[in-house]
């Protein structure tokens, strides 16, 4: 069965492009466009991996991440943070908090797919 990936980003263009790319690589995708939706979809869809934008409306990615961590079934779902902030501090912060990986926008497709694979334990 194809693994399910929840893509969370307030930019629909990015979500769409990512979804196409991941589908082409045999992943199921679910999309959310803000923090509230992200929580809702995470609970409903029980994804295998979450790709989470760091900065979003209605609660940022960090809040979503922290909330997920508190839930016993979702706390174990790997989260890859994705951000356009060129800041090392952000990377260090999320990695320290227990994120599976970190991707910088704009991302290299190959790099993204490798990180997804790694986070899903499919390597």
């Amino acid at each position: 069965m194809a693994k399910k990936i929840l893509i969370v980003d307030d930019e629909p263009h990015i979500v769409k492009a990512l979804a196409l790319r991941l589908k082409a690589n045999n992943y199921d995708t679910v999309a959310a466009y803000d923090a509230m939706q992200a929580m809702k979809k995470a609970v409903e869809e029980k994804p295998d991996l979450i790709i989470l934008d760091y900065k979003m409306p209605a609660g940022d990615g960090l809040t979503v991440f922290e909330n997920l961590q508190r839930m016993c079934d979702l706390g174990i779902v790997p989260v890859i943070f994705i951000t356009a902030f060129p800041d090392k501090i952000v990377k260090n912060k999320v990695m320290e908090m227990g994120a599976a990986d970190f991707i910088m926008k704009p991302f290299d497709t190959e790099d993204l797919l490798n990180k997804v694979k790694k986070a899903l334990g499919d390597e």
Binding site: H13, I14, A17, R21, A24, A84, P106
Partner: peptide, 16 residues
Amino acid sequence: HELRTPMTSIRETISL
């Protein structure tokens, strides 16, 4: 930040 965001979708679309 604002430049990177659209660049991301453009790049990924071209890549697709």
